[in-house]
């Protein structure tokens, strides 16, 4: 089982307490009616789906209830870090240098 660190609880807890919630840092367009159909489709459905590092949303649904973001390697399933919702994506080179 994966262990995930909740930045609000400041505790590392079993994956069972968490729910995955898709790619992070996707901002809703300020004025959707100005978008073309293609742009709206891209916002709704097109995701980066990388092989490797992925910034993604998780929710501590069976815990504090909060959404937060995580950087996870989609190949190894390793979590590099988690951070509160609304914070920018952390600089990966710094994280790796710190290890």
């Amino acid at each position: 089982m994966l262990l995930i660190h909740c930045p609000y609880c400041d505790d590392t807890l079993p994956e069972l307490e968490f729910a995955y919630a898709g790619e992070a840092h996707i901002a809703r367009p300020a004025d959707p009616s100005k978008l073309s159909d293609e742009e709206w489709r891209d916002f709704l459905f097109i995701r980066s789906n990388p092989r490797g590092l992925h910034a993604e949303r998780w929710r501590h649904i069976n815990g504090c209830g909060r959404f937060f973001n995580a950087l996870r390697d989609t190949v190894s399933d390793r979590f590099l870090t988690t951070y509160p919702a609304g914070h920018p994506r952390p600089d990966v080179t710094k994280l790796e240098a710190a290890e």
């Binding site: 089982m1 609880c9 807890l13 079993p14 069972l16 307490e17 069976n62 815990g63 504090c64 209830g65």
Partner: peptide
């Protein structure tokens, strides 16, 4: 209960499964 309960201190509570 999936938690590591040895780390849970008396007097505390948490929502879990």
């Amino acid at each position: 209960c999936p938690l590591d309960l040895s780390r849970m201190a008396p007097g505390t509570a948490k929502r879990t499964l």
